[in-house]
Lab assay of single mutants.
Amino acid sequence: MEVRTIKVFTTVDNINLHTQVVDMSMTYGQQFGPTYLDGADVTKIKPHNSHEGKTFYVLPNDDTLRVEAFEYYHTTDPSFLGRYMSALNHTKKWKYPQVNGLTSIKWADNNCYLATALLTLQQIELKFNPPALQDAYYRARAGEAANFCALILAYCNKTVGELGDVRETMSYLFQHANLDSCKRVLNVVCKTCGQQQTTLKGVEAVMYMGTLSYEQFKKGVQIPCTCGKQATKYLVQQESPFVMMSAPPAQYELKHGTFTCASEYTGNYQCGHYKHITSKETLYCIDGALLTKSSEYKGPITDVFYKENSYTTTIK
Rank of each mutant, 00 (worst) to 15 (best):
Y269L: 13
T91I: 04
F9K: 10
G267N: 05
Y73G: 02
F217H: 01
L179Q: 01
Q195A: 14
Q30M: 07
K255E: 15
T226D: 08
V99A: 07
N111V: 03
S213Y: 00
N129H: 12
N49P: 13
Q238I: 01
G33M: 03
A87N: 08
S213R: 04
S294F: 14
T292R: 07
A136C: 07
V206N: 00
N14Y: 12
C156R: 02
C261V: 02
H256L: 13
R83E: 05
I152N: 02
L59I: 09
E296W: 10
M85P: 05
Y284W: 11
T55D: 05
I15G: 07
F128G: 03
G272S: 01
A142V: 12
K229A: 13
N16L: 09
Q270L: 09
I223Y: 14
M207V: 08
M245K: 03
L118H: 03
Y84S: 03
Y28P: 05
A289Q: 10
Q195D: 12
V58C: 10
D41R: 08
A231V: 04
E215H: 07
P131E: 05
E281N: 06
T5N: 09
G220D: 03
P241N: 11
G202Y: 03
L59E: 13
G288H: 01
T282Y: 13
K229H: 09
M244G: 00
F32W: 15
T27M: 07
T116P: 04
G202R: 06
Y155C: 04
L37W: 12
N157W: 06
T232K: 12
T43W: 06
P248I: 11
Q230T: 11
V185L: 07
T192H: 13
D13F: 05
T11Y: 03
I301L: 05
T159V: 12
D109T: 04
Y72I: 08
A231Q: 05
H256V: 14
D109F: 04
A108P: 02
C190F: 01
Q31D: 07
I277G: 00
A142N: 13
S86T: 11
Q237H: 13
C149L: 09
D63C: 10
T314R: 09
A117S: 10
W107G: 03
D287L: 01
G210K: 03
K298M: 11
A177K: 03
H273K: 00
E253C: 09
F174K: 02
Q31V: 10
L118A: 04
V3M: 14
D23W: 13
V3R: 13
E253N: 12
A145T: 04
N89T: 08
K127H: 11
C285Q: 13
M207E: 04
G82L: 10
F80N: 03
V189A: 11
T91K: 04
E264V: 08
E168G: 06
A231E: 01
E281A: 06
M209S: 12
M245C: 11
K219S: 11
V3D: 15
D38Y: 09
K7I: 15
Y73A: 03
T35P: 00
T232G: 02
L283D: 01
N157Q: 14
G33S: 05
Q251F: 14
Q175M: 12
S246D: 00
V21W: 15
G164Q: 02
T169K: 01
E253S: 09
R139W: 12
A136Y: 11
N157H: 11
K298D: 08
P131F: 02
L81N: 06
A69W: 08
T76H: 13
S213E: 07
F128H: 04
T10R: 10
G228V: 01
T55Y: 10
E215L: 06
F32G: 07
Y311I: 12
F217T: 05
E71S: 07
A132L: 05
H176L: 13
G272P: 03
M207S: 07
K93P: 04
V8H: 05
P130Y: 02
Q122Y: 01
N147M: 14
N100M: 15
Y84K: 04
T260F: 06
A140E: 02
T116Q: 04
G257Q: 07
R4H: 08
T55L: 08
W94Y: 04
T302P: 00
K280P: 00
L212G: 01
V160F: 05
T27D: 14
T11E: 06
E125L: 04
L186C: 15
K7D: 12
L81Y: 09
L102W: 07
T302S: 07
